[in-house]
Design a binder for these strands. Structure first.
Lengths: 349, 349
DNA sequence: TTGAAAGCGCTACCAG
DNA sequence: CTGGTAGCGCTTTCAA
C-alpha cells in the first residue's frame, strides 16, 4: 500500500484535510461550513472551502461535534417492549410520522427500549450517557416511579398515549366521547349485550380508559358490562382471537363487541368467523385506531378513528419546542377521535 | 439557587466527580468501570469506585467515548421511505428483531431514511459523519449506483430482501420454491385461472421475483398469466383492494389469487367480499409473509410463511460479525419459505 | 498500584 | 479577515 491516503478510505477526512486543500485554517473551515458569522469571510474563500469539502466528501465527525456542542441532535424513541412493535401496526405509523418531523429539523432518531429488571433507574442511564437530547415515550407504564422522576427532572420528554402527570408534556387520544357515541348508536340499534376485548391486560392507562368509557356509556342506558363480557387482549390479533373465544363461550348472548384496537379486532373477527357468527348479521364488531387496513377488510371495519400520524407529528413538534427551550402553549394535547361507521356493525339480531 | 450542584441536575456527572467521590484519580475510575486490566487495582478500591459511580448515577459521556474510541456502538437501519413503514407490518417485525439482537450486544439502533433528491451521494454523508459503525439496508433500490459504491467501499453493511451484488452481504427470502409448490397444489385442486396482485409496482426486486415464480410454475402446467391477471399493489391493503377490483373487472374468470404480501391480501379479501365472491368457495387467496395476524383472520389466511424475525436476527448477527472484523461464513443468506395451508384456499369452483 | 498528561476532532475565542 | 490555542470528557500510556 502506498503511503498516501486512498480515495476510497472514506470516514477519515477531518476539517484539517479540508483546510489544507482549501489553503486556509481549520477555524475558517468551521466558520464557513457552519454558516457562523463569527468572522467576515470573503465570498471567494467561502466558495473555495465549500468546494474542497464537497470534493473530499467531508462531513464533520459527529462525536467531536456532540462533545463540543453538548448536544447530540438525536432524540430517543422509547418503546416499552419490542414485542409491542411486532404486533401492533399503530406504532409504526406513529413512528414514521415522528421520524419525518425530526429529520426535517435535522434530528436523528434512536430507538430505545426500557431496560428491564435492573434495580437501577432505567431512564437515568439513558439521560446521563448524554446520547440523546430528548425523549419520546410510548405507552410508558402509568405509575412507574422512575418515569415520574424523569418527568420531574425537567429533561425534555413527551409522553405518548398515557400518563397525565401534572408536569408532563404529552399527546394522547381522547377516545371517550367517540366510544360513548358509538355505544349510544348501538343501543339505539337494539343491542343490549355488549362485550369488550381489551387492548392489553389491566393496568395500561389507554386500555383501561377505553373499557371505562364503554362501561360508563352503557351505565347511562341502564346496561352493565359483566366480568365475563370483558376479556383481555394483548395488542395482537392472536390475543384478540383467544379473548373473543372466551367471550363467546362465557357470554354467548353478546351481540356487539368493542375491540381494544384494530389489530385485536382482526382476531375478534377471526373468532366470530370460526364460531359461525356472521358479522354484522349476528354480531357487531367495533375496532379502535382506524389503521390503514381497516377500511379495506371484509366487512370493512367500523372503528374509532384516531389520527396516528398526527399524534406522532404533534408529539415530535412539542419535543422540538422543548429542545429549543420554548414552552409549549398546550403542554398536554388531547386529540379527538370519531367513530367511522362502516360494515362490521349492524342492528341487533 | 445554592452554589452547589443540585442532586436532580442529572446529566452532568463526569468521571472527575466519581474520582473525587471515591478518592482516586480519573484514570482509575476509567479502568475500573471499563473492566480493563491495564492495571491491577485492589478489590477494595474497585468496590469503592463502583459504589461511588452507582450512587452518583454516573454514565460515561457517550460523545467523548465515541470520539476517543472511534466507534459509536450504533448501527443505522436504513428504510427506503417512511411511508413504507406506515403500511407494511412486515417491517416492524424485522425491526423488532434487529433491535433485540443489537441491544443484547450493547449496540444502539438509529433510524435513517435515504435522503432523496440531492445530487450528492446519500450514503457517503451517513458514513463520513461517523455517527454509525454499520448499516442495515432494507429494500434498497436494486440498481442504485450509490448503494453499489457503498457496498464496494467495504463499509459494514447488510442488505435485507434485495440486491445480490457479488460483494454484498445480504439476507433474503427465497420464496420461489414455496410459491411454485403452492401453484402446483392449486392447479391440482382444479384451478386454471390465476391472478397476481403484486407487492409493489414493477422494479422492486422482491416483488418481481414473486410474480416470476408464479408465472414460471404456471408455465410448467401449460398455463399463462395474462397482463390483466397481474395488477400492481403497493404494500398496503388499500392498494391490494384497488388492484383486486381491477383484476376482478378485467379477468373475472380468476379463481385463485396470489397477493404480494399479507397486508395486500387483506385488501384482496376486501375486494372479493364487496364483489360478493366468497373466499374460499368462489375464489382462493394466498398471501405472503405469514404476518402475526394471518392465522387469526376469517377465513384464516393461507400464505407463504417466512420468518421475519429470523430474517432480522440473521441480518443483525451478520452485521455484528462484520463489526467484529470477522468474515461471515455465508455472506448471502437465503431463508426458505413454506406454504401454510389454512382457510383461504380451496378447490376450484 | 496510582496520578499526570496527551490527544481524539471540533468550535469558539482571541490577538494579530 | 485569519491563525493559534484552549477545552469538551474520555481512555490509555508512561512515569512515579
Amino acid at each position: 500500500m502506498l503511503a498516501g491516503k486512498k480515495g476510497s478510505e472514506v470516514g477519515k477526512i477531518t476539517s484539517h484535510d479540508v483546510a489544507r486543500a482549501a489553503g486556509v485554517s481549520r477555524a475558517t473551515v468551521s466558520i464557513v461550513l457552519s454558516g457562523s458569522d463569527a468572522a467576515v469571510i470573503s465570498a471567494e474563500t467561502r466558495e473555495r472551502v465549500r468546494k474542497a469539502a464537497q470534493e473530499l466528501g467531508y462531513q464533520p465527525n459527529s462525536a467531536a461535534r456532540m462533545l463540543k456542542n453538548g448536544a447530540t441532535r438525536t432524540i430517543g424513541l422509547l418503546i416499552s417492549g419490542s414485542n409491542l412493535l411486532k404486533v401492533d401496526a399503530f406504532i409504526p405509523v406513529l413512528f414514521g410520522a415522528v421520524c419525518d418531523v425530526m429529520r426535517a429539523r435535522g434530528y436523528h432518531v434512536l430507538i430505545e427500549t426500557r431496560p428491564e429488571g435492573t434495580g437501577a433507574n432505567p431512564y437515568r442511564d439513558l439521560v446521563q450517557s448524554q446520547r440523546i437530547d430528548g425523549l419520546l415515550i410510548l405507552n410508558g407504564p402509568s405509575h412507574d416511579p422512575y418515569l415520574i422522576e424523569l418527568i420531574e427532572s425537567g429533561f425534555p420528554a413527551v409522553l405518548l398515549g398515557n400518563v397525565r402527570h401534572p408536569k408532563s408534556h404529552s399527546v394522547h387520544i381522547r377516545g371517550r366521547p367517540a366510544l360513548m357515541a358509538a355505544v349510544d348508536r348501538l343501543v339505539a340499534a337494539g343491542h343490549r349485550h355488549f362485550g369488550v376485548v381489551t387492548l392489553s391486560p389491566l393496568g395500561l392507562e389507554a386500555a383501561d380508559r377505553r373499557v371505562q368509557a364503554v362501561a360508563d356509556a352503557l351505565a347511562a342506558h341502564g346496561l352493565t358490562l359483566g366480568p365475563q363480557a370483558i376479556q383481555s387482549g394483548n395488542f395482537s390479533a392472536e390475543s384478540g382471537q383467544a379473548a373473543m373465544r372466551r367471550l363467546l363461550a362465557e357470554a354467548p348472548e353478546t351481540t356487539a363487541v368493542f375491540a381494544g384496537n384494530d389489530t385485536v379486532a382482526l382476531g375478534v373477527l377471526g373468532a366470530c368467523g370460526e364460531a359461525g357468527r356472521i358479522v354484522p348479521r349476528d354480531i357487531s364488531v367495533i375496532g379502535f385506531d382506524d389503521l390503514p387496513f381497516a377500511a379495506h377488510l371484509w366487512p370493512p371495519l367500523t372503528t374509532i378513528q384516531v389520527d396516528a400520524s398526527r399524534q406522532g407529528t404533534e408529539a415530535a413538534k412539542m419535543l422540538l419546542q422543548l429542545l429549543d427551550g420554548e414552552t409549549p402553549a398546550v403542554p398536554q394535547i388531547a386529540l379527538t377521535a370519531e367513530p367511522v361507521w362502516r360494515g362490521s356493525d349492524g342492528p341487533a339480531p
